[in-house]
Simulated assay, not measured.
Amino acid sequence: MDSNEGTTPPVEFDSETGEYRVRWDPEQNSPTVAVVETIAAAEGTDPTSLDSLAEEIDLDSLEQLITPPNSDSDVHVQFQIRDYRVTVDSGGLVTLRSLDSDETNGETTV
């Protein structure tokens, strides 16, 4: 097995926007894995310690919404989990922003 198979690229942090971002390959990776790894990076913890995420969000539904079979649609799903606003798109991008950051910075882009 290829050592990169099933792994998500490193999570990046943008200090200007306060966002964590990771690009994942929809052909090789699961959006739920990308979400878990992004939250783990934001919390400075190991992804395996976030098992309780399945209690907070229906990960199977997220998987079905983002990776529908035989679909060429561009799908974006946004939800709040813990203290974060998470956006996942079918093109392979997960963006995570602290809800505190949203309040501090507002939703306005200058």
Rank of each mutant, 00 (worst) to 15 (best):
T38Q: 01
W24N: 05
A34I: 03
T32Y: 02
Q80I: 08
Q28V: 14
V35D: 12
V75G: 09
L93G: 04
D89C: 08
H76S: 15
F79V: 00
N70Y: 05
Y84C: 12
S98M: 12
V94L: 11
D2N: 08
A34F: 01
T38R: 00
P47V: 04
S73P: 01
W24V: 01
E103L: 12
D100G: 01
L96M: 11
R85H: 08
E37S: 04
T67D: 07
D25F: 06
E107S: 10
E37D: 08
N29Q: 05
A42V: 00
S30N: 07
L59C: 13
D46A: 02
V88Q: 03
I39W: 00
I39P: 00
V75I: 11
S73I: 03
A42D: 10
Q80T: 14
S73M: 09
E103W: 13
D89T: 02
A41D: 07
S61L: 10
E16N: 15
D58R: 02
S73Q: 13
T32M: 10
D83E: 11
F79R: 08
E5K: 07
R23T: 04
G44N: 05
S98V: 03
D72P: 01
Y20A: 06
V77F: 13
P69N: 05
T17A: 10
S30D: 01
Q78G: 15
S49C: 07
L59S: 13
I81E: 13
T87E: 15
E19H: 10
M1P: 00
V11G: 03
A42C: 11
A42Y: 04
E55N: 00
V11K: 00
S3K: 00
P47I: 04
L50I: 02
P10A: 13
D89V: 04
E55Q: 00
V22L: 03
P31W: 05
A40Q: 05
Q80C: 14
S49Q: 09
Y20M: 10
S71C: 13
V110W: 10
V33F: 12
S15M: 07
S90R: 03
N105D: 09
T45A: 10
G91N: 14
